[in-house]
């Protein structure tokens, strides 16, 4: 059972990064905040799933109540009391770990706001069963906007090459299984291209360029956040375009407006455009159960289309 789901790998890798970060990178991360983030994410996920599954049954009940209140006693539908399967706790755990890796806060309340809004965003901002905000990214931006004591440390990983290798290796394993390496390639490729143009124009030497691209935070974002298959466009061509747009926006925000957390704002701003891309280029929607069989995702996609 364990490690059968590709998300188990992701949980394993993110936990590994967390342990490495705390152990070797001198982070100001507090253990109590990790507990709060994980607890809030899981509880919110359970409650929200429960509420979401009750709602379709509750709705006819309420309608019945209004329609029939005059002549007969309402017929209640008791389906809603049946226990519901919860299958997204893994996703909630991934969201919680991503928040722990990226978001820093002074108070519990901030972490609770970030974690609960991150999970709720999946249920609130969805169209046709597909949520379009990356939950962890939504939580981070929500905390940055709504609270006064949240921050993100872009320099926390430094720019060691062995971190880059670790991220690329583990990220590559997950991406190969879910078939979303194209998003990472498009994002990093476009971003690297834009930075190269800027570097040449300003006349910096190339070590400046590599220093900017080797940032651990950038790689972690490109390999683990922007590739969440559930919230990004379904068709490969649209993922290419979409990721390139995020790279362009992140580049502008960083170099023209000097926002150190530009990648998170860029993803947040362009996440809703996923809907447009899905409308323009249709493709089967991603499902986790889909990749958990033996067939690789691209192969399955071929079989279906």
């Amino acid at each position: 059972m364990l490690l059968k789901d590709i998300r188990d790998y992701q949980i394993l890798f993110l936990s590994l990064f967390l342990v490495l970060g705390i152990g070797t990178r001198d982070w100001t991360l507090r253990p109590d905040l990790i507990v709060v983030a994980i607890g809030t994410c899981l509880i919110t996920q359970l409650l929200a799933e429960r509420a979401a599954s009750i709602w379709p049954h509750l709705k006819p009940n309420i309608q019945n109540l209004f329609a029939q209140s005059k002549n007969s006693s309402p017929k209640l539908n008791f389906d809603l009391l049946k226990p519901q399967k919860t299958n997204s706790l893994r996703s909630a755990a991934i969201t919680a770990l991503s928040l722990c890796l990226l978001l820093r806060a002074e108070h519990y309340t901030t972490m609770i706001v970030a974690a609960s809004l991150a999970i709720l965003s999946k249920f609130i901002f969805q169209i046709g069963q597909k949520h379009f905000f990356n939950p962890a990214n939504f939580g981070i931006i929500a905390a940055l906007i709504l609270t006064k004591d949240a921050w993100v440390s872009p320099g926390q990983w430094g720019e060691d090459w062995w971190y880059a290798l670790l991220f690329a290796g583990t990220g590559g394993m997950v991406l190969k299984r879910v078939g979303r390496w194209d998003t990472t390639a498009a994002f990093l490729g476009s971003y690297a291209f834009l930075e190269a143009i800027r570097n040449i124009w300003l006349g910096w030497t190339w070590d400046v360029y590599f220093h900017r691209l080797m940032s651990g935070s950038l790689l972690l974002f490109a390999l683990f956040m922007i590739t969440d298959p559930r919230s990004i466009p379904n068709a490969r061509i649209s993922r290419f375009v979409w990721a390139a747009c995020i790279a362009l926006l992140a580049f502008i925000l960083r170099n023209q407006f000097f926002i150190s957390t530009s990648i998170f704002w860029a993803l947040f701003a362009l996440a809703p455009s996923t809907l447009l891309f899905d409308y323009l280029w249709s493709a089967p929607r991603f499902s986790w159960s889909f990749v958990n069989g033996r067939l690789s995702f691209p192969r399955r996609q071929e079989l279906i289309t």
Binding site: T28, R104, A105, E106, K148, D149, A150, W151, S153, P154, W204, T205, D207, V208, F210, H211, R212, F258, S260
Partner: peptide, 14 residues
Amino acid sequence: FPEDLMFQETSNQQ
């Protein structure tokens, strides 16, 4: 140190 130093203020009160 190929790049100039960039800073950000945080709410970290430690």
